[in-house]
């Protein structure tokens, strides 16, 4: 991403000494902390970087590559492209905390699906937030997808049930289900999500075929608990990280990858329809290490 500039500066500055000494390691550590990897994950990565190399002469570019390599070791196994399956309809449930980028991501993913020739239906199961339906409807128009909705305040699970039926009857290929933002510590809202999943299963035991958790790159350590709780409640199958076009580096993904091994599918890099890219573990790691792309 565009996020590597300040890191490049701080890491290059270290290497007048060109020795992997304590001070150097501390500066590498700072860089990872500032990228939101968290204290524990940072500690492990730094240990891996220094293992067998401590006090050895080393080129600045090389140490950055080593750092990127250690981060990539964690991320590479979870770099999984998102594919639409052949189930009909292929049901994609999108979940996450408030304002993370769920609705926008559905628009972007839906555009890809439509471009691949699939018929797409969107279900506006955020029946809470003001104008959530109108927002999804705009995206539906942009990508030529039908939007199934009910008035604000309607039961989200009831709508999910009907949307499943309607998408089936329509012979749709892909059904995206948008949900209201919810903080993972709110038991009642998580119970509502659990119910949405259950009614989907009533219509098709194998659905939802993908449950995408949308994480905001600006979020710090709380994203770990988001991944944990949403997985427990809704059976998250993969992650999408948004807002990587800012200066936040999203390093919390490294901690999440270590802990939960959840596939990371894609990253959001803007507000427009084309601003979704497949997750690239190496590029992501190089950005964290301050290496130019």
């Amino acid at each position: 991403a565009k996020s590597s500039r300040s890191l490049t500066g701080s890491i290059s500055a270290i290497f007048t000494k060109r020795k992997l000494d304590q001070a150097t390691l501390e500066e590498l550590e700072d860089a990872l902390i500032q990228a939101d990897l968290g204290v524990e994950t940072t500690g492990r990565i730094i240990q891996a970087v220094s293992a067998g190399r401590y006090d050895k002469e080393i080129e600045p570019e090389e140490v950055k590559s080593i750092l990127a390599g250690e981060v990539a070791k964690v991320l590479k196994p979870v770099e999984v492209p998102f594919n639409f399956g052949t189930q009909k309809p292929f049901v994609v449930l999108v979940v996450g905390v408030n304002g993370a980028g769920k609705t926008t991501t559905i628009g972007k993913l839906g555009a890809i699906a439509a471009r691949e020739g699939h018929s797409v239906v969107l279900a506006a199961c955020d029946t809470f937030r003001a104008a959530a339906i109108e927002q999804l409807t705009v995206w539906g128009t942009r990508i030529g997808a039908k939007v199934i909705s009910r008035p604000t305040g309607a039961d989200a699970a009831g709508l999910a049930f009907d949307a499943m039926k309607e998408a089936k009857a329509d012979g749709a290929d892909i059904l995206f289900i948008d949900t209201a933002g919810r903080l993972q510590n709110k038991a009642n809202l998580m119970a509502e999500l659990d119910k949405v999943v259950r009614v989907i299963k009533k219509q098709d035991e194998t659905a939802p075929h993908a449950v995408l958790l949308v994480l905001d790159a600006t979020t710090g350590q709380n994203a770990i608990s988001q991944a944990d709780v949403f997985t427990k409640v809704a059976g998250v199958t993969g992650l999408i990280m948004t807002k990587l076009d800012g200066t936040a580096r999203g390093g919390i993904l490294v901690a999440i990858a270590e802990r939960f091994k959840l596939p990371i599918h894609a990253v959001g890099v803007g507000e427009q329809i084309e601003d979704l890219q497949p997750f690239d573990a190496e590029a992501f790691s190089r950005a964290i290490a301050g290496l130019a792309e």
């Binding site: 902390i33 939101d36 790159a217 979020t219 710090g220 994203a223 200066t247 936040a248």
Partner: peptide, 12 residues
């Protein structure tokens, strides 16, 4: 600003 913001809080 979001109370869940991480290290980027200072930049923004």
């Amino acid at each position: 600003a979001d109370a869940l913001t991480g290290q980027d809080a200072v930049n923004l």
